[in-house]
Amino acid sequence: MTQIPVFDGHNDTLLRLWQRDDPDGGIAAFLAGGAGGHIDLPRARAGGLFGGMFAVFTPSRDLGDDYIAMMREAAYDVPLPTPLPIADAQAATFGMVATLLRIERAAGGTLTVCRSAGEIRAARGRESFAAVLHIEGAEAIGPDLDALHVLHAAGLRSIGPVWSRPNVFGHGAPFRFPSSPDIGPGLTDAGKAFVRECHALRLVVDLSHLNEAGFWDVARISTAPLVATHSNAHAVTPHARNLTDAQLDAIAERDGMVGLNLATCFLRADGRMRADTPLDAVARHLDHLISRLGEDRVGLGSDFDGALVPADIADVAGLPRLFEALGRHGYDAATLEKIAWRNWLAALERVWGA
């Protein structure tokens, strides 16, 4: 199969680089290769990845690595981390934003931070990797929303109000299996004001980590397309982080977008975090998402560098194996191209404008 170009809706590579001990923060290793994890620039080229949403995520001090082990069990309910102090979140957020801007400066034109769909297309045309700045959990932003405007000026174009922990804006969906996403209250008054301001700025408001009440709050407040950058189908895997058919139908009605998550706990019918997850599990979710959303509103939201993905993919260089498997499953070349990149660019244009 000819290599398919890919635009990915979600990765956590900035966190991995920001946490490295390298004097330059892992920038040289990202650009030249050897940075570890799932993504660096040479492996992105090998896998056909020409761009994607680079998430800024502040880790919780009280959420250790043992939560991964918990998700290998038959059922689990990972405790929600405590809210983050804003000073901690701002230090991490500004550090990761600076990392991405430093990569752009060091890249010599081989990576571009893009602020519009037109810039993504232009970057691809000159073979420059197109990186879009995204924030996963808005803890670095206070209720006055001043930091939101500063980050927007720095290039922010997509943001999730919450990660899977509460903050001043609302409540997230926990890592719980089996479970409905209908858990607890949704957006606070500050969260509703936050969504209105994001709408005014034409930012993507990412629904992926919101609980169900928060999802419907966003749907009521904003008239923009509804977007979940890295979420799967609850009907296939009944995990609290996955989207119900009612949510998927609402996204379809609003001409929105869902990025299919490769984290194995959201793919497997048993909800477990296991690398030996077959690629058939990806195909089952894709089948269901397309059945509710249509073939024009589904893409990839890999969660590379933030999750355990199937061993048959392993890292970004393994994306051709994923699309080969989807081709064998029955998807034709035109549909695979939509899923790989065309749908994401069309959805971003619907939110941002051209």
Rank of each mutant, 00 (worst) to 15 (best):
S302E: 10
I135R: 00
T264E: 01
G48T: 09
W352S: 09
A35T: 12
L101K: 12
I86S: 09
D189T: 11
P5E: 10
G301P: 04
D296W: 08
R196S: 15
L203D: 02
A107L: 10
G137E: 07
F266H: 02
H209P: 00
W344A: 09
G214E: 00
L100H: 05
F54C: 13
I39E: 09
E139H: 09
V258N: 00
T229K: 03
A252D: 07
P42V: 12
K338R: 15
L293G: 05
G160S: 09
A117G: 14
M71A: 07
R196W: 04
D270W: 10
R176M: 09
D305T: 09
R321C: 06
S302Y: 06
A233H: 01
L207E: 00
D255S: 14
D40G: 11
A307H: 08
A228T: 04
D77V: 04
I68W: 13
A317Y: 12
H199C: 15
T93H: 02
D182N: 13
R16N: 15
D24Y: 06
F129V: 10
G9M: 01
T82W: 12
L15F: 13
L210Y: 02
A107S: 15
R321S: 14
A311I: 12
L286A: 04
H171V: 08
R196L: 13
D332L: 04
P166R: 14
N343G: 06
Q90M: 13
A235M: 08
H230M: 06
S302L: 07
V258I: 13
E324N: 12
F266L: 09
S302A: 14
V309E: 01
F57P: 04
R297H: 06
G330R: 02
C114P: 08
A263P: 05
S291E: 13
A334K: 06
H38F: 08
M71D: 04
I290Q: 00
H149E: 15
M96F: 09
A246R: 14
T93M: 07
T99E: 08
Q3S: 15
G142M: 02
R254A: 14
V56K: 03
P278S: 06
A190W: 00
R241L: 05
F57T: 02
A354G: 15
G33D: 10
P225H: 04
F30E: 09
L207H: 00
T13W: 10
A138E: 06
C198G: 07
S180F: 03
G299T: 00
R20W: 13
I221Y: 03
G170N: 05
P181C: 03
L262P: 00
V113D: 05
T110H: 13
P166L: 07
D24H: 08
P225R: 01
G160A: 11
F7V: 08
L226G: 01
V56Y: 02
G47M: 07
G271N: 00
R350V: 02
V6I: 15
H239I: 01
H152D: 11
A106R: 08
R102G: 11
P79M: 07
D77M: 11
A107W: 04
G37W: 08
L201Y: 10
A106M: 12
A263F: 00
L262N: 02
